[in-house]
Write a protein that binds this DNA or RNA. Structure first.
Length: 284
DNA sequence: GTCCAGGCCAGAC
DNA sequence: GTCTGGCCTGGA
């Protein structure tokens, strides 16, 4: 166990619940997080964290804790339209996840809700993933590898993990990766356009899912994924637009290499503020 | 019961 | 290339 002074610019709760990562659990005294073969149990105390399991050093890496967000945030605040979002998003981090876990998570995200995505990820890991050990009394499991996932029966996967019609997307994607057709490491060396085109060869990966994988799994921070929530908030702030693609282009153009962070700020805000939720958007 | 949830895919034009 | 309908499933 290691003691870590609560990092001033990291809001653990906000970063985990902001819809970028799904392989974590809330416990009564903190959080359990898995990334690759690392697992942490974090007890959140008044002014410090107790970190069990993998090293606190690796946890800080995962939380992008070595990067100073101040310059970026100050710069974005100069845009008065964004100032409120920057302020409300204090402590929101772009988590440093690995490609494979974001591929699985965002294939599952299509036409789905966050609670169910999280449940599917956790049951996938518990049933088919490698056990990473018992930490602070809780068992942790890694996400199953592409090799393991590629050999599963779709019906079994659907029934055991509640993935719905995405069963064959997951298995098909796992096959293309495990047989070497798609090389996940090579994607990281490509430019954005080629990387995106390559990811979109995977079944279940379209424009939006590819953008999420590129941003959260490969850290192309100029990506600006546009989903239904982003469509709503962007329409309110900068509309009107005629399509999601137009919004994506607008965002990438306007925010440049801060686009990914801006997307995350807007997404988080629109998910947590009633004024932007469906059915209440048109009320004064 | 209906609607919606961080869309993708196949088929039609 | 653009547009449309269908899709597992669980919760509000």
């Amino acid at each position: 166990m290691e003691i870590l002074n609560t990092p001033v610019d990291i809001d653990l709760e906000m970063s985990l619940t902001s819809g970028q990562a799904f392989h974590w659990k809330k416990f009564k005294d903190g959080y359990g997080i898995v990334s690759g073969n690392s697992a942490w149990y974090i007890q959140v105390e008044e002014d410090h964290w107790k970190v069990f399991g993998s090293s606190s050093e690796s946890l800080l890496d995962y939380l992008d804790g070595k990067k100073n967000y101040c310059p970026m945030r100050c710069r974005l605040k100069e845009d008065l339209t964004l100032a409120i979002f920057v302020e409300e998003g204090r402590g929101l981090r772009l988590l440093q996840q690995e490609p494979w876990e974001t591929i699985v998570a965002f294939i599952l995200s299509a036409n789905n809700n966050m609670g169910r995505i999280q449940r599917s990820i956790l049951s996938l890991s518990e049933m088919y993933g490698e056990e990473l050990g018992t930490i602070n009394g809780e068992k942790f499991y890694a996400l199953p590898s592409p090799e393991t996932l590629s050999q599963l029966d779709p019906k079994e996967l659907r029934e055991n993990c509640g993935v719905g019609y995405r069963d064959n997307y997951l298995i098909g994607t796992a096959k293309l990766i495990s047989d070497g057709t798609i090389d996940l490491n090579a994607i990281g060396e490509m430019d954005l356009k080629e990387a995106k085109a390559t990811l979109m060869k995977l079944p279940g990966v379209g424009t939006k899912v590819a953008d999420c994988i590129l941003l959260f799994g490969y850290h192309f921070e100029e990506c600006f994924p546009v989903d239904i929530w982003m469509e709503r908030v962007m329409e309110t702030l900068y509309g009107p637009f005629t399509s999601r693609r137009e919004i994506a282009n607008f965002g990438a153009e306007k925010f440049g290499h801060y686009a990914g962070y801006v997307q995350q700020l807007l997404f988080h805000y629109s998910r947590t503020k009633d004024s932007l939720k469906p059915g209440e958007r048109n009320m004064q």
